[in-house]
Design a binder for these strands. Structure first.
Lengths: 233, 233
DNA sequence: CAGTGGTCTAGACCACAAG
DNA sequence: TTGTGGTCTAGACCACTGG
């Protein structure tokens, strides 16, 4: 069967995907090398490379020099989650955003926070607690520690008007970080702030971000009951 | 200041990142076009393109034809989550994997499942419930519906030996799907199966996958207390 | 050692969108 | 209309790795 000329990398990728889904190329099989494919498709090898590279990045193909390219046996699928600013997330759902600063103080952090932020024992950090609301109802509760050493301008920030979440995103391009997703059961504090029932299951995101100068901030976002994080794969 | 010759796309990308982090190029700023940068760095335009394309995909740059390339104002960071087979996830943590089939039957699905799987009213689907254990303790509880119309070979699957999770990954390369993450509070059923206390917060993943023939499967994974999903950004 | 993917190049044309 | 990114090409060399 001839497939005609596939002149762009998208159509090459589509054709490769088609063959995998049609099980013409099965998991574990080696597929022809780039040079052969480029001859078959009537395009340059670079075009085939572009197509296959994408599929390898998404985990569907495994590529090794000398060995060749094979269809992944157990494809590790990758889900891509967008992490927008909370205000945008709420407004994006067509709901009215409101923000409330609950507290702002300098304090010595508890051991777990201190460890995550690699700050010295006894050193005070900025502790900001706030609430984001959608259509007047609590949406997510933000408990954040900020290291002023890595971001001195923080003292000029007005957290009455703008949430630390938004201020930091706009003012400190970070270089790296990590995110942890988990679930907790609502305790008295969450009950009060999020206006939920005792022991409701709550979705939690813990996030830390850093630059070359060290850890900037560590935050726990506790979402109101019913929150869902969704993505396509 | 001269940066010398940057001959590969990685070093070009690093240099661009450096300038953004050093706030030489600030959020909202336009950066020089590809042709200028390629002259400055002493490399081909394609090399600059490769470097900038990656940064645009990760959300740090915004590129538009004719307009040019600018540093994103509010970078929508993307977290990439690996979704491995559960057995691999457990074994990857150095823990002993065990799998238990709890039930397997043909049944008419409840309305929410039927809607998600786009199956006809009254049509029976395969319903498989199973438990994955790590070091002898419940790890995650798998409640899965499978549409035999889209994957007839399912009847040959031996779910006593291999979990539906693994069987499906190995046997049906899917074309698309969606994932939802949320939290619930443990009810009697979860208490029994996961051996946890009442009302503990549990992490939940709902996932559906499809091919051109329709929805293959829809699964709810309910994780034992303390489960965390982690990634770097 | 040799075969495969990974990358760079110089040049070309195309597609989109701002003015 | 025109400037910018998006892509393709043909060829070249490099880097890794299996045999």
């Amino acid at each position: 069967m001839t497939t005609g000329e596939l002149k762009n990398w998208q159509s090459v990728q589509d054709e490769v995907l088609r063959r995998i889904h049609a099980r013409q190329w099965k998991p574990g099989d080696f597929i022809p090398n780039e040079e052969e494919l480029s001859r078959e498709f009537g395009c340059a090898r670079a075009t085939v490379n572009r197509a296959l590279r994408g599929l390898a990045e998404s985990g569907l193909l495994e590529r090794k020099r000398k060995a060749g390219t094979r269809v992944a046996l157990s494809p590790v699928r990758k889900a891509i989650l967008d992490i927008p600013v909370i205000r945008r997330e709420i407004e994006g759902k067509g709901r009215a955003y409101r923000y409330l600063l609950l507290s702002r103080e300098e304090a010595v952090p508890p051991p777990d926070i201190r460890a995550r932020m690699q700050s010295e024992p006894g050193r005070k950090l900025l502790h900001v607690i706030s609430l984001h609301m959608a259509d007047g109802r609590p949406y997510v509760f933000e408990d954040r520690w900020i290291n002023p050493d890595t971001i001195p301008e923080i003292h000029e920030a007005d957290f009455e008007r703008q949430s630390p979440n938004e201020w930091l995103v706009m003012n400190t391009p970070f270089e790296g970080g990590d995110i942890t997703f988990s679930a907790i059961s609502a305790s008295a504090r969450e009950m009060t702030i999020l206006a939920c029932k005792a022991h409701e299951g709550l979705f939690v995101i813990d996030r830390s971000t850093w630059t070359g100068k060290g850890v900037i901030t560590s935050v726990r976002l506790t979402f109101a009951p019913g929150y869902q994080m969704h993505t396509d794969i």
